[in-house]
């Protein structure tokens, strides 16, 4: 075996080579650790700052009150309900569509220039600023199709926004599945759909879920596209209940309801002159952080369950 570093004048002893490798190993570990520590410190100081400002403001009243001109009476009921409902629509649209599109591109699409063009476009779309999606939604859904400024439109807009992320994640997950699984399925006489639905999709699920988490975490914090389509800032009532006491017991009227979301409420409070509103904004930020963590926790728990059931 040749020495790693070619040094014509002096041959390195084996011990020296090992020592050098150890050194660079250690250096890299220190570098990695310091990067990690720095980013964690930034994140933690942000959270601590939020907590110092906002934690004392959070109580049941804050969660169950509508916005108010008096900072001490204002709450985020309409905001967190709005965010939850919009995220529900977004998830219900973006995940199935994104997974289906990713699977098609990876498994079914013929390898030609059209597919290639679509692939490049999808990857590029993931980097388009969110305000562009807002403008698209304003022109298409709100004005041309006259669907109004509703939860449904906001959900569709955010779904479009995160669709590329989910498509890319699905493709990566499918691509990383070992060929043996596919071949094994074919060897057992499965056809293409049976292979995809019975073997490929279950194996790719953890990766797909990771993509969904990343996408939804992005969607929950978006303000610009939602403001563009015309979400409201002051709204002191909730969307109609999805449950009713007559047949068929559930309804979807809430989809057509006007709404506001957490980031908009925060944005409005931050720009107010009274310091008490800034405290409200910090408290809203904390709750939004909590909602994101909760959403991710559910997804991670699902991923964990799936991984275990696959063994």
């Amino acid at each position: 075996m040749k020495p790693l570093a070619a040094q014509p004048s002096r041959r390195l002893s084996d011990a020296e080579i090992v020592a050098r490798a150890h050194r660079s190993d250690r250096n890299f570990a220190i570098l990695g650790l310091s990067v990690l520590v720095i980013s964690m410190i930034v994140l933690l100081s942000l959270i601590v700052d939020f907590m110092v400002d906002g934690l004392g403001r959070i109580d049941l009243d804050f969660l169950t009150s509508f916005p108010s001109r008096r900072a001490s009476e204002a709450g985020i009921l309409s905001a967190w309900v709005g965010t939850t409902l919009v995220m529900l629509v977004t998830t219900a649209l973006a995940v199935p569509l994104g997974v289906a599109a990713g699977l098609y591109l990876e498994e079914y699409a013929p390898r030609n220039w059209i597919t290639h063009l679509i692939e490049i476009n999808v990857t590029n779309l993931a980097g388009v600023p969110s305000i562009i999606y807002g403008l698209l939604a304003l022109g298409l859904f709100v004005q041309s199709l006259a669907m109004g400024q509703t939860i449904l439109v906001a959900g569709i807009t955010l779904a479009l926004l995160i669709l590329p992320i989910i498509i890319v994640a699905t493709r990566e997950a499918v691509r990383s599945i070992p060929l043996e699984i596919r071949e094994g399925a074919y060897a057992l006489g499965a056809d293409k759909w049976q292979t995809v639905s019975g073997y490929i999709l279950p194996t790719a699920r953890p990766g797909i879920l990771t993509g969904a988490i990343v996408g939804m975490s992005r969607a929950i914090g978006e303000t610009a596209p939602i403001i563009t389509i015309g979400a409201l800032t002051f709204i002191a009532f909730l969307p109609p209940s999805p449950v009713q006491d007559t047949f068929p017991f559930i309804n979807f009227n809430w989809l057509n309801s006007p709404f506001t979301v957490m980031p908009i409420q925060m944005f409005n409070w931050v720009s107010r002159p009274q310091a008490a509103f800034h405290v409200n904004a910090a408290a809203t930020g904390l709750i939004l952080l909590l909602m994101t963590l909760l959403m991710n926790a559910i997804a991670i728990w699902l991923r964990y369950k799936i991984r275990r059931s696959m063994r």
Binding site: P67, R69, L232, T233, F234, A236, P258
Partner: peptide, 30 residues
């Protein structure tokens, strides 16, 4: 809907108005 400068005034009005008129809803945007 409209100006964020006028928003605090309209918000205050909408809040009190809805307390006095439970059957009417008011929304304000910026």
């Amino acid at each position: 809907d409209g100006s964020s400068t006028v928003f605090p005034v309209t918000e205050a009005m909408a809040e009190e108005f809805q307390k006095a008129n439970k059957d009417i809803k008011v929304t304000v945007g910026i």
